[in-house]
Amino acid sequence: MPDALSLLLERHSTPSRQLGEPAPDESTLQRLLEAAIRVPDHGKLVPFRLIRLHGEAKLAFGRRLAAIAIRNHPEMSEAKREKEQLRYTFAPLVIAVVACLHADSKVPEIEQKLCAGNVAYNLLLGAHALGLGAQWLTGWAAYDADAAAMLGLATHEHVVGFVHLGTPQIEIPDRDRPALADLLSTWTP
């Protein structure tokens, strides 16, 4: 029997700069998104939504974000300006995962945010399972009011991550991982 945990043990992020075409086709993307939204959801609040950025719209989004960054930080070095201008040009598809917090719910806000975060992580796992590459990024844009307005977010919403998806263009070596023994303890009364 194959190791049922190999998917988790082999999962790693592919840097967005190393993601290219092809993106998942429409039917594969729909299946990936359906899998991604199957998350623990205390109270069945569905405290998340997804925004697809692809094609010219993705590039326009990236250009507008770069303009915001440069406007807010005119002293930015040329290297940082270039990084901002190129950020959304590599991966062919980006999914913005948005937390939609229900302030009137008895479910704590942290649980609602974790639910949305699980959607982003499921996108990473699903992409890996499909042989695609993915990277979950936040950066300043996830916390910026102008970026939120550009995405049409309501006051109770915020980005938990921009998941960049595509086909890995190079083989990505795994990074060093922490030792379980350094992280696990056993509670005793």
Rank of each mutant, 00 (worst) to 15 (best):
T28V: 14
L29P: 08
L29F: 02
L29S: 11
Q30N: 13
R31S: 14
L32E: 00
A36W: 00
V39S: 09
D41Y: 03
D41H: 00
H42F: 12
G43H: 15
G43K: 10
K44Y: 11
K44L: 13
K44P: 13
K44I: 09
P47E: 10
P47L: 06
R49I: 10
L50P: 15
L53S: 00
L53H: 02
L53P: 04
H54T: 12
G55W: 15
G55E: 12
E56T: 14
E56N: 12
A57Q: 03
A57G: 07
A57H: 05
A57W: 03
A57T: 14
K58V: 12
A60S: 15
F61Q: 11
F61A: 08
F61T: 07
G62N: 11
R63P: 12
R64V: 02
R64Y: 03
L65P: 00
A66Q: 07
A67S: 05
I68H: 13
I68Q: 13
I68L: 12
A69I: 10
I70R: 06
N72M: 12
H73R: 10
H73G: 06
E75G: 15
E75F: 06
M76N: 00
S77Y: 08
S77D: 14
E78T: 11
A79W: 13
A79T: 07
R81C: 07
R81M: 04
E82F: 09
E82H: 11
K83F: 05
E84H: 10
Q85T: 07
L86V: 06
Y88F: 14
Y88S: 01
Y88I: 04
T89Y: 09
F90L: 09
F90E: 06
A91I: 02
P92Q: 06
P92I: 05
V94F: 10
V97C: 02
V98T: 06
A99D: 08
D104E: 09
S105W: 07
K106H: 07
K106I: 02
P108M: 05
P108I: 00
I110W: 10
Q112G: 04
K113I: 11
L114E: 05
L114M: 09
L114S: 09
C115M: 03
C115I: 05
A116T: 05
N118T: 11
A120D: 08
N122F: 03
N122A: 02
L124P: 09
L124A: 07
L125F: 10
G126L: 08
A127H: 00
A127V: 00
H128A: 14
A129L: 08
G131D: 02
G131H: 03
G133F: 01
G133D: 07
Q135A: 00
Q135L: 08
W136M: 05
L137F: 01
L137M: 15
W140T: 11
W140L: 12
A141F: 01
A141Y: 02
